[in-house]
Write a protein that binds this DNA or RNA. Sequence first.
DNA 1: CGATAAATTGAGCCCAATCAAGGCAAGTGG
DNA 2: CCACTTGCCTTGATTGGGCTCAATTTATCG
Lengths: 241, 241
Amino acid sequence: MDGHVTNSSLSNLPLLCRFCEGRRNGICAVLTPAQLLEISRHSSRRQLAPGEKIVAEGEEISSYHNVLRGVVALSKTLSDGRQQIVGLRFPSDFIGRPYGDESDLAAHAAVETDVCSLSRERLDRMAFEVPDLGRRLHRQALKELDEARDWLLTLGRKTAKERVASFLLLIAAGAEPLPRNATGFELPLSRAHIADFLGLTIETVSRQMGALRRSRIIALEGSRRVAIHDAEGLRRAAALG
Amino acid sequence: MDGHVTNSSLSNLPLLCRFCEGRRNGICAVLTPAQLLEISRHSSRRQLAPGEKIVAEGEEISSYHNVLRGVVALSKTLSDGRQQIVGLRFPSDFIGRPYGDESDLAAHAAVETDVCSLSRERLDRMAFEVPDLGRRLHRQALKELDEARDWLLTLGRKTAKERVASFLLLIAAGAEPLPRNATGFELPLSRAHIADFLGLTIETVSRQMGALRRSRIIALEGSRRVAIHDAEGLRRAAALG
DNA sequence: CGATAAATTGAGCCCAATCAAGGCAAGTGG
DNA sequence: CCACTTGCCTTGATTGGGCTCAATTTATCG
């Protein structure tokens, strides 16, 4: 629906964009080579260590970002320190909040992560001039809205076990580009991050992981590597279907 | 930033739009009289009784809506019946999810409500042709996203008392157009709806309202009318500031 | 290998859910 | 006008799921 451009040969593309995920599935997919060149002049690729901050809560934003590799956690914090992760961004996802006003999120790399940082001002201007880009950003916002609302149901109404099961399904599904093989996949979040995402404590997450393992729905190898043995059982445990 | 139109005299406007809130603050604010006329040809005003359904979960959507009066609750339901209200729409708010795919919400009038129903197909087409309208819808989505993320923090990390206090602040602030006077304001939701919004049970909501009353932070007149006696205390009780 | 952080496990407690009873206001029919 | 119903809310007693605090165990990394 959006894309109608860029089957052009690699050599037309700015160096920065040639092997970029964002160009294939992200917001850059709707840009022509000329537009890519224009925006790439004000872009830069950055590698982030696990835990590294991308934007702090309340900070003035001057760049947007595309996630190229890794996972970024968006979080909000209460004045007394309680924290909630309100979204996860995976490769080809966009990070940013057009139309400045409001919003007050922190963004941290959850694992080693590459992002492409774009000039906010430039992209805003281009979104104004290129309707397809504006629409692409609109769709991105709607996707995030859908995700946030799904998660509201999870946080408001699901039990600890259901939340953990829902999380595993989310990662298993939404995280295709993450390292995975026959023996399962790698969780891109620590127990502490998972707890912050699920509105639980570390201990409860750990116990529920253990419970899912003991009921043979999943298998664990170390604390990060997960294999789903009974997908149907996991869906049931997540209160789906 | 959006608006650059319509200081035109009332008589230029379609009858339907003349006294409409949506024209002043809603998405219709960016439309010219001619565009309003075009869209209003495929619009109709409806009055909804409390509890009346606007769209069911999973239903195919053929209209968008503007809320003119009252309150609309957007909700999601688990297969076993557990329900979560994921958003409230007040007068001048837009109800709808452009770009069809995904999203699976029910919408119910919480109180007696007037909505203006617009042809989805027409508005989609107009949003494609009128950049300002597309941007207005984009901003609307971002506003909803901000709200959803605030609520994620509330549902994930706040206690029952903090949730109830947060809810009262939300209504007191966001519901300016609702009936109010010196003795406070009218809650637009029943205890059951409040519970569904806060991820609590009716009984807990009732108890926490009682607790806030006993600590002289609010006063209750019947079960619907609320007066805030100690705004600062309420903010503290909501874990803000 | 030792040091330090991360994850698991256990014991006890507390907040909110559950179960159950009763109050209150509006409507209905005799 | 009063008995009765019905829907909504409040209050009480009890239970239980998830939190807290604390002790190990297991990864991770110099």
